[in-house]
Amino acid sequence: MLEIKNLSCSVVDNDISILNDFSLTIKEGEVHVIMGPNGTGKSTLAKVIMGHYKYKVLDGDILIDGESILNLDVDLRAKKGLFLCMQDPISIDGVSNSEFLRTAKNSITGSKTNLYSFIQDMEQAMRDVCLDSSMMHRSLNQGFSGGEKKKNEILQMKFLKPKYIILDELDSGLDVDSLRIVCENINNYMKTNKDCSLLIITHYPRILEYLKPDYVHILKDGSIQHTGDINLAFDVEKNGYSSINNLSGDDSFE
């Protein structure tokens, strides 16, 4: 279970709070969605959970299975099962996709992955996400299109087998076919890993046609203002956030 309790945070060199008393509990197998206007702290939330160096926690806690992760380095959070699918994955020249993923896999599992089976698994995973197998040997995300970067994120997810997946605007930069492919891969992953939970950050409900949410939350001014089901997302798309006060919802969701 991933619990975020009364979390307030700011950027490191500024005490102005971005998240304010934010609380959310994600149980095993649940799919949660966070929507909200630009600048309300959606991506900040994702990065703070992962331990990004630009943010500091002012108050509150983040717990995995009852244990606080606030004092853990980023890599240890990943080993706890967290995976952040980034909005704009960074390119790293000179570090090949396969070398990176194999090192990550070794680190997560704590044992050396057999090279032959790793290559076979990677080729299969690349076919699954419709990436050309030659990309295995290319520098990490270097020269990849926006869609290829997102597919590469899902490829990493399939390999590293996380328990808590955060998708930060997965749908940005993806064409309709690519969106369908990555969502099919996520759904297949969720089916075979029943205890896996999903936190989806998005602006558009289109992705929710593929990834069916249990809860949709509206984030405003750094905290959850409304919670509902998928219909809340469609209402927002139709009427905008300005109509949010007229929507019914469970304000006290936790």
């Binding site: 980023v74 990943a78 995976f83 960074i90 990176f100 990550a104 990493q156 590293l160």
Partner: peptide, 23 residues
């Protein structure tokens, strides 16, 4: 930002540096 990305996939800071230096 590169170190954050690499560590977010489970690599230690030391392993991340090693890959970056090799690259």
């Amino acid at each position: 930002e590169k170190l954050f990305y690499m560590m977010s996939r489970g690599l230690t800071r030391k392993d991340s540096y090693r890959l970056l230096l090799n690259g």
